[in-house]
């Protein structure tokens, strides 16, 4: 066998098993939709309990974050995510999991340098680039207002 790296790359790609895209997409749709439905249901419940709509929406978001953190701590979030994929990762539930899981993981390296410092190794970039894009959006919004 005498292959260049380019030929080998083709040799591998031709034989490589692929992720089940249709199944993954379907489950992502169902779980993602399910989480949105749960959020909507919670909002309605909070409104029934007398909260104003904006307050109810905030409470619903907080509840989803709590549930995600709790299921991560209890060790079954990752098992759901294996099936649900992007359906559970993309909503706010994914963000909560990405903060809680490293916090648990690095607890063994201490409260400050472990949990505290490494809590944002996954979510950090989301925060950084989220802030940058919100600033950019603000500038564009302001320019548009001046014009």
């Amino acid at each position: 066998m005498n292959m260049t790296n380019k030929e080998y790359s083709k040799f591998v790609t031709d034989r490589q098993p692929h992720s089940p895209v249709v199944k993954d997409t379907l489950f992502a749709f169902l779980f993602g939709g399910g989480i949105c439905l749960l959020g909507k249901g919670l909002t309605e419940l909070y409104m029934l309990a007398g909260a104003a709509e904006t307050v109810a929406k905030t409470c619903s978001t907080i509840s989803l974050i709590f549930l995600s953190g709790l299921s991560t701590a209890l060790g079954f979030y990752d098992k759901i995510a294996k099936v649900a994929g992007a359906g559970i990762v993309v909503p706010i539930t994914g963000f909560a999991n990405s903060v809680v899981s490293p916090a648990m993981e690095f607890r063994s390296e201490g409260l400050v340098l472990g949990l505290g410092a490494k809590m944002f190794i996954v979510a950090g970039p989301v925060i950084v680039f989220g802030l940058i894009s919100s600033v950019l959006y603000g500038i564009i919004y302001w320019i548009a207002g001046v014009i």
């Binding site: 991560t72 759901i80 899981s101 490293p102």
Partner: peptide, 8 residues
């Protein structure tokens, strides 16, 4: 990734 991080 951390053990409990949800991914496929």
């Amino acid at each position: 990734m951390p053990l409990e991080y949800g991914s496929q």
